[in-house]
């Protein structure tokens, strides 16, 4: 790897990291697992002036359940999530689909969320489950809804002097389930199409809350709000899920590329939405 020249700082606390990043301005970057940043530096698509390495900061590597939420720290690797007994639903379903085992050992969930790659899987899962991003800056912490955090293609809503310290993912107390369906060409490939679902059931068995979000079929990870609206208040059924699949397909905005035609990707969205909803319902009902 022959990247362009850059400075390097290994921070030992979040405060130090934020300060070092602020000093470097918008050309400075946080280095977490490096699994998105380093490949881009290798190709010289990214030429940061400074890397602020957060890997030595203590206390950022925990996964905890707290107040009906799963808290995921900034140094929790994809592999930690895949191996954790604390995760369920769409999160547990998606974890083994991220990249390959080597990348999962280093790459972080927070890094992936911050990166806002529309082909990244986690942001769909977070959109479907309604998660929040915890950011820290010089004046303290704030919580950002994932829908507001993901602004655009590779763009998040962090200020220059902020970093992500944790994610808060809701864990419903009642009956719920979730699933992630991903079509990839091989292990380690980004999604051709990915669909995350999340369902909560009321006591009468009808759907009380629903989340559906899609990967790689729009300029950013996209919630299928029409599909969600269709689901809520109804009893789970194959027909309902097929209808929701069509609504999700209509909300998708895929492109023709080497992975396949847009027309076909829409059909995969429909099929996967249907399958992911069926899997979520089965989990919630069991």
């Amino acid at each position: 790897m022959l990247p362009a020249r850059f400075d390097y700082v290994a921070a030992s606390s979040v405060e130090e990291a934020i300060a070092a990043k602020a000093e470097g301005g918008d050309e400075a970057r946080i280095l977490a697992g490096g699994q998105s940043l380093l490949p881009m530096m290798k190709l010289r698509f990214a030429t940061p002036s400074k890397l602020v390495d957060i890997n030595r900061i203590a206390g950022l590597d925990a996964i905890r359940s707290h107040n009906g939420h799963l808290h995921v720290g900034a140094l929790v690797r994809h592999a930690d999530i895949a191996a954790s007994g604390a995760v369920s639903g769409a999160v547990a379903s998606a974890a083994p689909w991220i990249a390959d085992p080597l990348v999962r050992n280093l790459g972080t969930m927070c890094g992936s969320v911050a990166h806002c790659d529309p082909e990244g899987d986690w942001n769909s899962v977070l959109l479907a489950t309604g998660a929040e991003v915890v950011a820290q800056g010089p004046s303290g912490r704030r919580t950002i809804d994932i829908g507001d955090f993901v602004q655009d293609f590779f763009t998040n809503s962090l200020a220059e002097d902020e970093m992500v310290v944790a994610l808060h993912i809701p864990v419903p107390s009642g009956r719920s389930g979730g699933s992630y369906q991903k079509l990839e060409r091989k292990v380690g490939d980004y999604a051709t199409v990915g669909v995350a679902t999340h369902l909560e059931l009321a006591d009468d068995g009808t759907i009380s809350a629903a989340g559906v979000a899609m990967t790689s079929v729009a300029p950013i990870n996209r919630k299928a709000t029409d599909a969600e609206a269709l689901l809520v208040g109804n009893a789970p059924s194959a027909e309902l899920f097929a209808e929701a699949g069509e609504a999700a397909a209509a909300a998708a905005d895929p492109r023709d590329d080497v992975r396949g035609s847009a027309r076909w990707k829409r059909r995969v969205v429909a099929a996967f939405t249907q399958r992911a909803l069926a899997a979520a319902a089965e989990q919630a009902q069991s």
Partner: peptide
């Protein structure tokens, strides 16, 4: 899964192992 393909301007699509696929044991 494999092909080296080009867009209409002759740009090679498949210039690294994220685009030109080598199967794994999986």
């Amino acid at each position: 899964m494999q092909w080296i393909t080009f867009d209409d301007d002759g740009n090679c699509i498949g210039s690294n192992f994220m685009d030109y696929l080598i199967p794994t044991a999986w």
